[in-house]
Write a protein that binds this DNA or RNA. Structure first.
Length: 104
DNA sequence: CTCGTGACTTACG
DNA sequence: ACGTAAGCCACGA
């Protein structure tokens, strides 16, 4: 199944996130020139390259980890992030702004 | 084309 | 602080 142009751009940016760092849906959306982080979430949810594309490094802008594997606040996502050096406390990212990688 | 849904974000009460 | 509404845009029916 072919990927849409939109999805290619989302995955391309997501793959660039370094280990131990995270980014937000909004940052990706802005980098793509749209104002909808929701659309980014849609693309990552349909991620055909997992785990080639580290979609667990993409979190919400309020510090929550967001969803993973079709579920919200998935503990699996928190576990993966911890193993990469990103602390998670009750579904929230510790030092969220410090780990955040801006795409500008 | 329209409509509903969603791994989002911000504003309001 | 918390829940809800509205805005947002891709995708499938």
């Amino acid at each position: 199944m072919p990927l849409t142009h939109f999805q290619k751009k989302v995955y391309s940016l997501t793959k660039k996130i370094p280990k131990g760092k995270i980014t937000t849906y909004a940052e990706i959306a802005k980098a793509l020139g749209i104002r909808s982080a929701q659309a980014v979430g849609t693309a990552l949810k349909r991620n055909p390259f997992a785990p080639g594309v580290p979609c667990h490094r993409v979190v919400r802008s309020d510090g929550r980890i967001g969803g993973y594997a079709g579920k919200m606040d998935n503990p699996k996502k928190a576990q993966l992030l911890r193993e990469e050096g990103v602390g998670i406390k009750d579904g929230n990212v510790e030092d969220f702004e410090k780990k955040l990688k801006r795409l500008c």
